[in-house]
């Protein structure tokens, strides 16, 4: 006990000062990443969102939902049932399908290219995931402040949560950062 009363001041001081330095270092990191442009990888920005085959084949009837939104097993499930794709025939020739498969596997939410979208794997069974993005736990959580009836279903310019691009202005480029959200007839989403 004698020893501890001697070293308590330097020890306590070290703990306190490191707490403050670490606690405030988030600002420095934030500032650095926005100054050096590294912030682009920080946000909800899907890598390689501009793949031409993906845009062409998946983006004709609905927006080309970024690969990073669903895990590999979900994409596999979708690709093996393209002839009955949510009650539509979306069948592809084998070569195109394989090309898409490799792109989607490489960028899925449980792949190394997921980036911040890795959070979309939270709370789901990776082996048996939902295949609808809107059924993902993380999707639900991120949209729990959105009034489903007023802002989505009964909003003439939205209609459904599947219409990412209705509110996420840069959804087709794979960008889902909060400052790109503009809910039609309700305005910008500032939270």
């Amino acid at each position: 006990m004698k020893l501890i009363t001697k070293i308590r001041w330097p020890l306590g001081g070290a703990l306190l000062s490191s707490a403050l330095v670490i606690g405030l270092s988030g600002f420095a990191q934030q500032a650095q990443s926005s100054w050096w442009g590294e912030g682009h990888e920080e946000g909800y920005r899907a890598k390689n969102a501009g793949n031409p085959t993906h845009i062409e084949e998946c983006g004709a009837c609905h927006i080309a939902y970024p690969a990073q939104l669903l895990p590999k097993a979900a994409w596999q499930e979708i690709l093996s049932n393209l002839d009955n794709h949510f009650d539509e025939d979306a069948s592809l020739d084998d070569a195109t399908r394989d090309e898409l498969a490799s792109f989607l596997m490489k960028h899925a939410s449980d792949s190394e290219n997921a980036g911040k979208f890795k959070k979309f794997t939270r709370g789901i069974e990776l082996q048996n995931p939902p295949i609808q993005i809107t059924e993902l736990k993380y999707f639900e959580r991120k949209h729990d402040e959105i009034n489903h009836q007023r802002m989505v279903i009964n909003n003439p310019d939205v209609g459904s949560f599947s219409q990412c691009q209705a509110c996420h202005e840069k959804a087709e480029q794979g960008i889902f950062d909060e400052d790109t959200v503009n809910i039609p007839n309700f305005g910008r989403w500032d939270d």
Binding site: A60, C61, H62, I63, E88, G159, S160, S162, Q163
Partner: peptide, 9 residues
């Protein structure tokens, strides 16, 4: 306009 998804064609 895609009748199910409302995507512009």
């Amino acid at each position: 306009l895609h009748i199910r998804t409302q995507k512009e064609i």
